[in-house]
Simulated scan of single mutants.
Amino acid sequence: MEPSAPPWRNPRRHPRVTLVTQVESRARGQTCLGRVENISVGGMLVLTRDTFEAGSEVVVRFNLPGGGHVEAAARVMHTRPGAQMGVQFINLTEDDRRAIVGYVQEVKPYIRRSVRLARRTTLLLRWKDSEGNPREEVVETRLWSRHGGMLLAETPLKPGTDITLAWPEKGKEGRARVVYRGLGGEEGLAEVGFEFPEAGNFWGIEFPADPKLWEPM
């Protein structure tokens, strides 16, 4: 019989969603800096060159979009030295649990439709402001999916905003709609989740059918 997966990695019990934010992990007087890859109310995956051994108890500190701050005890469940470690939260406070659950519930409807691939690509984002004036900004993607993606932008566009994405390098342009906005992301930029309203293949690649094939950023 195969050993069961740690509870925090069971998607049926604790759904995981993407979270792009810095995290500080402390144990035995040492501090590791890294970046959260995904999170659930049970734990999270941390990308970091400095990892602790499996079984270590640590304290993690990170921010959630919207200004929430979490500082929680956790246990390292698995590690890949020099690359990443998975941690399980221990006795979350009610406030921290509520904040994480709220974030997961807000993001989950956006990400669950298809496999996501981590991709950094420079695009030109265009939209119209509240007065109908054309605006544009150079942005960088963080995630691609068959139906849309997630990018980082200086302008925190509201869900429901119609946008146009131009990919000069490929000579492509496509319409999309903002479906998620997260504040306090990487480098203080806004996380903007978007979906394409029309069927097609804007990214020009085949997406794997198996969620286990998600790639690290």
Rank of each mutant, 00 (worst) to 15 (best):
V58A: 05
R61D: 14
P65N: 01
P65Y: 03
V70M: 08
E71Q: 14
E71K: 07
A73F: 12
A74N: 00
R75S: 09
V76W: 00
V76M: 02
V76T: 01
T79I: 04
T79G: 04
P81M: 08
P81Q: 06
Q84E: 15
M85W: 00
G86I: 02
V87W: 01
V87M: 01
Q88W: 10
F89S: 02
F89Q: 00
L92M: 07
T93N: 12
D95P: 00
D96I: 11
D96S: 15
I100C: 03
I100T: 03
V101T: 13
G102K: 01
Y103R: 00
Y103T: 00
Q105C: 10
P109T: 07
P109G: 09
Y110D: 09
Y110L: 11
I111L: 04
I111T: 02
R112P: 01
R119Y: 09
T121R: 14
T122Q: 07
G132P: 03
N133E: 15
N133G: 14
E136T: 10
E136G: 10
E137G: 03
E137V: 03
V139H: 01
L143Q: 13
L151G: 03
A153L: 04
P156F: 04
K158A: 13
I163F: 08
L165H: 02
W167Y: 14
P168D: 05
